[in-house]
Simulated assay, not measured.
Amino acid sequence: MIDHEQDLVSVREATDRLLTAAASWDNAAVAEPSRLPGWTRGHVLAHLARNADALVNALQGRPMYADAATRDADIEHGSARPLDVQLADVRETAERFQAVCAEPADWSRTIELRNGVTDSASRLPFRRWVEVALHHVDLGAGYELEDLPEEFVRREIDFLTERFTGNPTVPPTRVIATDGSGSWTTGSTEGAEVTVSGTAPELLGWLAGRREGAALKTEGGPLPELPTL
């Protein structure tokens, strides 16, 4: 059962952790490349702020973004701001998200996200946790997938394997965490099954498009290529 209140606590902790790490930078560090192709650290921080705004919009019944072009333009425009402005934006928008989530609401209602995707309102705090935690890793500032909380890693693997289930471009795939975190099935139902095994952080890195999977072991075929998230 999803505990959105506990997830909100985790979101706040993850946000504080990211802000504390970034507070040690200077303006030059913000302009350095992140681990996301074509994005600086400033792009990542601007995206995090705008994502908080977008989730507030969704919770209040509005479209997350006016359109894709506006979303991209807002991130690009915000990417070159000084460090103090970036951090203030991330902090203030995070607080606004928390404040809206603290309002009385029906957490079982369905929320419309981007591109026709819908989800239960109760899952939005976890979605925000994913944004903050994975993008902290993307900043390339010493925080790695192995540093993520075990609960987070397991739940995000749950989410991603569910997302790829039934996708005809992914072969039937059994995913096994060698550290005992669990096992999952994903992909289509047609064709020979491929087994992919490794530590939970390595599996998450592959599923989330953060690692190429070189440290993973496969049986029954090559490592499946996954659709872009």
Results as ranks from 00 to 15, higher is better:
residue 121 A to M: 09
residue 173 T to V: 05
residue 132 V to R: 12
residue 112 E to Y: 00
residue 186 T to E: 08
residue 113 L to A: 09
residue 54 A to N: 04
residue 126 F to Q: 00
residue 177 A to G: 02
residue 157 I to E: 07
residue 193 E to S: 10
residue 129 W to Q: 15
residue 66 A to N: 10
residue 133 A to V: 11
residue 138 D to I: 01
residue 100 V to D: 00
residue 74 D to C: 04
residue 178 T to G: 01
residue 166 G to Q: 00
residue 60 Q to M: 13
residue 110 T to N: 11
residue 192 A to V: 14
residue 169 T to V: 14
residue 97 F to K: 09
residue 181 S to W: 03
residue 147 D to P: 10
residue 80 A to R: 15
residue 87 L to I: 02
residue 155 R to N: 10
residue 153 V to A: 13
residue 189 T to M: 11
residue 99 A to F: 03
residue 156 E to Y: 12
residue 171 P to T: 09
residue 66 A to R: 12
residue 145 L to S: 00
residue 171 P to L: 03
residue 145 L to W: 10
residue 112 E to I: 06
residue 92 E to H: 05
residue 66 A to Y: 03
residue 63 P to A: 05
residue 53 D to E: 15
residue 169 T to D: 14
residue 136 H to E: 04
residue 185 T to W: 06
residue 102 A to L: 08
residue 135 H to D: 03
residue 179 D to M: 12
residue 74 D to Y: 02
residue 181 S to Q: 13
residue 181 S to V: 09
residue 158 D to R: 02
residue 89 D to E: 10
residue 183 S to V: 04
residue 103 E to G: 13
residue 112 E to L: 10
residue 161 T to V: 06
residue 191 G to E: 02
residue 187 G to N: 05
residue 188 S to C: 12
residue 69 A to E: 12
residue 104 P to Y: 12
residue 162 E to I: 10
residue 190 E to V: 15
residue 81 R to D: 09
residue 82 P to L: 06
residue 122 S to I: 03
residue 97 F to S: 04
residue 157 I to T: 07
residue 105 A to P: 07
residue 150 E to N: 06
residue 123 R to W: 11
residue 71 R to D: 06
residue 79 S to L: 03
residue 179 D to S: 11
residue 178 T to L: 01
residue 61 G to T: 10
residue 61 G to C: 11
residue 127 R to Q: 15
residue 129 W to A: 12
residue 172 P to L: 06
residue 63 P to C: 07
residue 174 R to K: 12
residue 90 V to Q: 02
residue 124 L to N: 03
residue 176 I to C: 01
residue 105 A to V: 08
residue 152 F to N: 08
residue 125 P to M: 07
residue 84 D to H: 14
residue 191 G to K: 07
residue 110 T to S: 14
residue 116 G to K: 06
residue 129 W to G: 11
residue 131 E to P: 13
residue 143 Y to D: 12
residue 103 E to F: 11
residue 100 V to W: 08
residue 105 A to H: 08
residue 70 T to V: 13
residue 132 V to W: 08
residue 190 E to S: 01
residue 95 E to R: 14
